[in-house]
Amino acid sequence: MNWVGHYNYWVVIFLMMSGFYVVISRGNMIKKLLGLNIFSTSVFLLYISMGKIHGGTAPILTDNPNQVYSNPLPHVLILTAIVVGVATTAVGLALVVRIQERYGTIEEDEIRAKDDSL
């Protein structure tokens, strides 16, 4: 097992888990969305790390016939995933804004208290 070779993966996993931690442990709705963003971005880092080749370059054709190119497929997948992520953030924020207007707060425990008291 290659400690040095896997260092990248483990740091990215640490980032993922910190994002995940924010989502499940914090009660403020906007903070949860921030955590979700960190979680997704770290997953993207993991994917792109898998596509990297030492000594390679960006997958754009150059004049050098012996050039090694990095794998373009993960790049395409992550391009899609980034856009999906921002779309989710936008919809989440719209919901949060409406919740603030109807409830007066965006902290989950206060909202639960207001719902239960009805």
Partner: peptide
């Protein structure tokens, strides 16, 4: 409905 949608959003995205 809004809190239900938000909860679904967070869990669904995870």
């Amino acid at each position: 409905a809004l809190t239900a949608a938000y909860q679904y959003l967070v869990m669904g995205t995870i």
